[in-house]
Structures are given as structure tokens and as C-alpha cells.
Design a protein around this nucleic acid. Sequence first.
DNA 1: TTATTACATGTTATGTTATATCATCTTCTT
DNA 2: AAGAAGATGATATAACATAACATGTAATAA
Lengths: 165, 165
Amino acid sequence: MAAPLNPATAFVKHNHQTCSGGVMEMADQRVRDAGLRLTPVRRRTLEILLEEHRAIGAYEVLERLSKSGFGKQPPVAYRALEFLVENGLAHRIRRLNAFAACMQPGQTHAPVFFICSDCDVVAEAPDQGVGNALGVAGNRIGFEIERANVEVLGICPACQAGAAE
Amino acid sequence: MAAPLNPATAFVKHNHQTCSGGVMEMADQRVRDAGLRLTPVRRRTLEILLEEHRAIGAYEVLERLSKSGFGKQPPVAYRALEFLVENGLAHRIRRLNAFAACMQPGQTHAPVFFICSDCDVVAEAPDQGVGNALGVAGNRIGFEIERANVEVLGICPACQAGAAE
DNA sequence: TTATTACATGTTATGTTATATCATCTTCTT
DNA sequence: AAGAAGATGATATAACATAACATGTAATAA
């Protein structure tokens, strides 16, 4: 069974082997259920994103992909990333022009991204409250929401502690 | 006195002359109060953003600036835009790689941007609820929020009405 | 099986967005 | 009037992203 996932695991010390392994399992299952194909490039791309709790730029992904024997041209990375994003296995972090693995694949969620400006770690916190508030705000002005992107910049717990030393 | 500003004015029929004029007045005052310099390029840049309730790309701004007799090189536009953003007179809409005038300069606010995917109009709605929800979510994980960026994609009231015809 | 179709991968080429750096000029301060 | 800080302009280049086409692979139907 997949490892249990707390909100904002990224900011908490954890066994990352287990963490990323669990996400990969969930991704596999999601892909199977949806009849999609997690081809070698796509799988490797997801692995790369899962290596750290950071958002990774397309060209950095590309570099690592080509080292793994895949193509060297930008579309190789962009296509794999697009596939992952469209199918809920990764997110695009616009502020950083970069991509991060989805840590709750398969769950419907309105993710909020917390980005530490100190250590660059990105945590995804599913949050009902924010989604609800957005719905209310949208209703008030008659706006029909398709999707929302919430990116929060600040200092993560670890860096707050570190800075205080 | 400046025109009164409703949330999401952008989606409502209004006298845009009065609307943009009012914002410019507020901007002038804000700049005066803060001891900043709204130089000709900067002022013209803000005017350009105020012409429509859309987000405008840096290179489109640049083109119009050069037609107005200012420099033709990217940094001309990027610097003016950066100034406006840093001083709360404009916002960067990351999903669109573009910039929009701030419609409530001077007010402290946690803006939510509603972007119509049909007509591209961008409305800025100050919203307490979303800000509060974000604060709560941040607290829960011990994240110290510096600033948040909330961009909502969907269909504006006018386009909903239009599509129904 | 093989023909057909859909999808995936790879390449070339190019488009779009953004910034570093240096020279010149203006404005403010002393 | 001199010096410091800030603004503008140009050159050059970096970083991010996509269009278009050729080739290959997998699934499906004849």
C-alpha cells in the first residue's frame, strides 16, 4: 500500500524513498485506471520530478532525460511534462516557470502551492477552505470558474527555524 | 474625486474614461505619498495598461512605448513594468505572461484575478475570504506567507450571456 | 497476417519572454 | 559646483516554449 501522505509533506522530514515510491505507485494505478500510457520517457520524467520536492524547469528535465538516453530537444521534455500535467500527475508552477510532481495523484483537489523563497521547496497542500472562498468570490461576480491556480510565496518552517539560529 | 471602484468592474459595463482616469489619479497620489517618481515612460506604461481591462505582454507594451517616442529595447518596457509592479500600481498575471494595471492602487489587498478564457478580460477582485483561508492553511503547516498569487480561469458573466444566445 | 489507424518520439527550426551589462544623462544632495 | 543616486537607452544574450515534419511503435480491423 502506498505511503500515507500528509499535507505539505515537503516541509516535513520524511523518508523520501518511501514518499516518492508511494506517489509513483499511485500514479501507476491512476494511469492504468484511465487507460493511459506511462511510456518510458513519461515515467522517467515523473521520476525526475519526484527526486526532490522542488519545481524543476523544462530544460533541466530535458538535460536529465537526454542523459538517460532520450532525445535532446526541448519538445521531448515539454511533451512529457504536458502529458503529466494534463493527466494530473504533475503541476506547473508558473511563478517559477517550472514543474513539480503531483503528490496526491488521483485525488480531486484544488491544490495550493507553498513555495519557500529560501530553499525553493514546493509543497502542495490540498485545501478546501481556499477553494470554497474562491467559489464564493466567483459567485458574487457571476464568474464561472474552470480552474484556479494558487501560489503562495514565503518561508517554510525549516527555514524559519534555521534563520533563528 | 476618484471614481468609486466596485470589485470586478472589468466585467461590468462602465464608463471606462472615468474608470481609468480615477485609477490614474489614485496612482498619482500614491506615488506622491511614497516619494516615488512617476516619470514619463512609467506614466505612459501605466496609461497603456489602463486602456483596456486586459493583461498586456511586455513586448506589446514596448511597441506602444516606442511609438510614443520612448526606447525600442525590451529593458525599457520591463523596467517600467517592474517599477509599477513593485510599487503596487500594476500586477503581473503569470498565466498570461503579461501585466495589468492595478485597479485599487493604494489599498492593501490580496487580489484575486479572474481571467475570462473567452474574451481575455482580467478582473481584480479584492477578497478577504480567500486571503483568510490562505492564512489559515499557511498556519496549519507553519508557513510564513509573504505574498500570494491567485489566478482563476473561467468564463465572465458577459461571455456566459453571449454564449447562451 | 497485414493493412489501417492512432499515438508517440525525435529532429530542425523558430518564436517568445526576460535579463545582464555598460554608457549616458538627469535629479537630488551636500 | 561636486558627488551620489537613480533613470534611460542600446547591445547582446539567456531562458522558456512551440510549430511542423519525419519516423517509429502499438492497437485494431480486415
